[in-house]
Amino acid sequence: MDVDEVIDQVAALEGVLTLRPQPGDGSPEISWGDAFFYYAPDGQVPNGQPFATVVTKAYPDEEAPWLDRPGTFRLNIAVGRDAMATVLGQDADRVPEAGAPDTLVAHPVYGDLGWVAVTNPGERAGERALTLVRSAHARARARRQRRDGGAQD
């Protein structure tokens, strides 16, 4: 899968608001070219974190120089702290080779907060990653419905 295919699949989920920062929109330059996915059927950015992101470069708080190679991106997914061991199984504590493509791992910075990541998802981890995105979307939707008092969107 290329970055546009991943972004299109996540953005197509019901009620998803996709933010794609770019020059001139007031967003920080570091975020340009990336994508942030929220469950927001009203089109308003909710308080809190997105349920998934796609990044195309390393951010200042992480060491990921491989992300600066052309065509390289990372899909990040909020699976929740309780699900980390189940999602990653015996690999939960394994530190992957830096930038190993198509390998589902704990997020290099936010793993302790229940985030997983996959660089250039493909044949090995792509479908699993998209399944995890759909689950993260469902959890975000359920949180929104609880916050709104159970109202359907």
Score class of each variant (00 low, 15 high):
Met1His: 09
Met1Lys: 08
Asp2Ile: 06
Val3Asp: 04
Val3Gln: 13
Glu5Thr: 11
Glu5Lys: 08
Val6Phe: 08
Val6Arg: 01
Asp8Cys: 09
Asp8Met: 04
Val10Ile: 15
Ala11Trp: 03
Ala12Gly: 11
Glu14Cys: 08
Gly15Lys: 09
Leu17His: 06
Thr18Asn: 14
Leu19His: 08
Gln22Pro: 03
Pro23Phe: 11
Pro23His: 13
Pro23Trp: 14
Ser27Leu: 09
Pro28Ala: 12
Glu29Lys: 15
Glu29Met: 13
Ser31Tyr: 14
Phe36His: 14
Phe36Glu: 02
Phe37Thr: 01
Tyr38Glu: 03
Pro41Ile: 13
Asp42Glu: 15
Asp42Cys: 13
Gly43Thr: 11
Gln44Glu: 15
Pro46Asn: 03
Pro46Cys: 06
Gln49Ser: 13
Phe51Leu: 05
Ala52Phe: 00
Thr53Met: 14
Thr56Ala: 07
Thr56Gly: 13
Lys57Leu: 08
Pro60Gln: 05
Asp61Cys: 04
Gly71Ser: 08
Phe73Trp: 07
Leu75Asn: 05
Leu75Ala: 07
Leu75Val: 08
Leu75Asp: 00
Asn76Arg: 05
Ile77Ser: 04
Val79Arg: 04
Arg81Glu: 09
Arg81Val: 10
Thr86Gln: 13
Thr86Ala: 10
Val87Ser: 02
Val87Arg: 03
Gly89Asp: 01
Gly89Glu: 05
Pro96Arg: 02
Pro96Glu: 01
Gly99Tyr: 04
Ala100Phe: 01
Asp102Phe: 00
Val105Arg: 11
His107Trp: 02
Pro108Gln: 12
Pro108Thr: 12
Tyr110Ile: 03
Tyr110Asp: 11
Gly111Pro: 02
Asp112His: 15
Gly114Glu: 08
Trp115Tyr: 06
Val118Lys: 01
Thr119Tyr: 01
Asn120Phe: 02
Gly122Gln: 03
Gly126Ile: 01
Gly126His: 03
Arg128Asp: 13
Arg128Gln: 15
Arg128Met: 15
Ala129Trp: 00
Ala129Glu: 10
Ala129Gly: 10
Leu130Phe: 10
Leu132Val: 06
Leu132Cys: 03
Val133Phe: 04
Val133Pro: 04
Arg134Cys: 05
Arg134Trp: 03
Ser135Val: 11
Ser135Lys: 12
Ser135His: 12
Ala138Trp: 02
Ala140Leu: 13
Arg141Met: 14
Arg141Leu: 14
Arg143Glu: 15
Arg143Tyr: 05
Gln145Thr: 14
Arg147Ala: 15
Asp148His: 14
Gly149Ser: 13
Gly149Thr: 10
Gly150Tyr: 12
Gln152Ala: 12
Gln152Asp: 11
